[in-house]
Nucleic acid binder design. Structure first.
Length: 214
DNA sequence: ACTGCGATTATCT
DNA sequence: GATAATCGCAGTG
């Protein structure tokens, strides 16, 4: 399945399929490429965990209602940014939060360490969380709404070249206790045993892909 | 205009 | 496990 096809899916279908795909960010220091290793789905007007719950369409949530393929970037706790991949069709709020990435190579990692002012001996904390990866990739609200699939952009999604060979686990999303019955939905996806995943799961479920994707 | 709080993180005990 | 940092957003009036 191509990236172009993935971003037209619902957030719940797209979230596991974005694992292993590549984010590219052009900075003044050069290009940084990394692999997506953890995601969360925030999809539809019914999801009480979503900013767009009840079709709440405001200046902040506007990007979630657009057609898939753009970024939704917001400020959280007054000091960190989070980046989402908007998916699905226009007027249906669907977004996949990128919760953790892994630098693809040495140079990528060096540039990320510099942006986040993290010494190499703490590299495991470089980008294992949604706020941390935005710092490491210099992502802020100036990138809200940018096209992720267009050539020439400074923030892009690229299809993984190598085959995706890993197991996927899922579990409840992080820090959405306010979401009532939606807080327990297993809509967080991550590469099993990956060192850059942001949090352990007490009782992870194996993610079984739908038959029509096999 | 005013208020409460968050899709987080680092640092402390 | 607990807490501070820090501010835009969404709801209320």
């Amino acid at each position: 399945m191509t990236i172009q096809e993935i971003v037209q899916l619902s957030a719940l279908e797209a979230a596991p399929r974005l694992l292993g795909q590549i984010m590219s960010r052009i900075t003044p220091a050069g290009e940084i490429r990394c692999r997506i290793v953890e995601t969360e789905s925030y999809g539809g007007a019914e999801d009480k965990g979503s900013h767009a719950y009840g079709n709440r369409r405001t200046a902040r949530t506007e990007m979630m209602f657009r057609q898939g393929g753009i970024a939704y970037v917001y400020l959280i706790y007054g000091m960190y940014h989070c980046v989402n991949v908007v998916t699905g069709t226009e007027n249906d709020p669907q977004a996949v939060l990128i919760r953790a990435v892994e630098p693809l190579g040495r140079v990528d990692e060096q540039r990320m360490l510099a942006l986040r002012h993290v010494p190499p001996n703490r590299r495991r904390t470089l980008c294992n969380g949604p706020g941390k990866l935005c710092l490491a990739l210099d992502i802020d609200k100036s990138l809200n709404g940018v096209q992720l699939l267009a050539s020439g952009g400074t923030l892009r999604l690229e299809e993984a070249k190598e085959p995706l060979d890993f197991a996927i686990e899922c579990g409840p999303r992080i820090n959405i206790d306010y979401a009532e019955e939606y807080a327990a939905k297993p809509w967080r996806f991550y590469i099993k045993d990956h060192p850059y995943v942001s949090a352990k799961n007490s009782s992870p479920l194996a993610y079984v892909p739908p038959l029509d994707t096999l």
